[in-house]
Design a protein around this nucleic acid. Structure first.
Length: 108
DNA sequence: CGTATGACGAGCC
DNA sequence: AGGCTCGCCATAC
C-alpha cells in the first residue's frame, strides 16, 4: 500500500469518498471536495486522483469522478477514452462529450 | 518556508 | 460553445 493510502491523510479520504460512489453514477470533483469538508478543494481532489498508481487505481472507481457539468477532465493519453468506456459500460449516458450529469449525478 | 503544479470551478469574453 | 484568467487546496521540491 502506498503511504498516502495507508495514512489517514487527504488522499485516503478522497479514495474513500470516491469508492462510495454507486455504480452507474458520477460525482464531480467539487462534490467530492465538499463531502470532505473542503468546498473549494476540487483541485486538491484532482491532485489526489492524479496520484493514483496502477495498483491503487484498481480499487478506486476514479472513472466515476468528472468535472463540473459532467465534463471529462482527463486531457490526454488513454485516460479520457478509458473513463468514457468504463462509464458507458455502467450504463452512464453521455450528451455529446459530457456525462448526462442531470441523470447520473450523485444527488440526482 | 517560498514557489510550482494540476484529472478544478466560476466568471468573462 | 470554446477558451482564458484567477482563486483555491494539498503536495512536491
Amino acid at each position: 500500500m502506498d503511504r498516502a493510502a495507508r495514512t489517514p491523510g487527504f488522499f485516503a479520504r478522497v479514495y474513500a469518498v470516491v469508492g462510495a460512489i454507486p455504480r452507474g453514477r458520477v460525482a464531480t470533483y467539487g462534490q467530492v471536495a465538499r463531502l470532505l469538508g473542503l468546498p473549494r478543494g476540487a483541485r486538491a481532489v484532482g491532485w489526489a486522483l492524479r496520484a493514483l498508481d496502477d495498483r491503487t487505481a484498481r480499487r478506486v472507481p476514479w472513472h466515476r469522478v468528472v468535472g463540473a457539468g459532467g465534463r471529462i477532465a482527463l486531457r490526454s493519453g488513454p485516460g479520457p477514452v478509458l473513463q468514457r468506456k468504463r462509464l458507458a459500460a455502467e450504463g452512464v449516458r453521455f450528451r455529446g462529450t459530457h456525462v448526462d450529469i442531470a441523470r447520473h449525478g450523485l444527488t440526482s
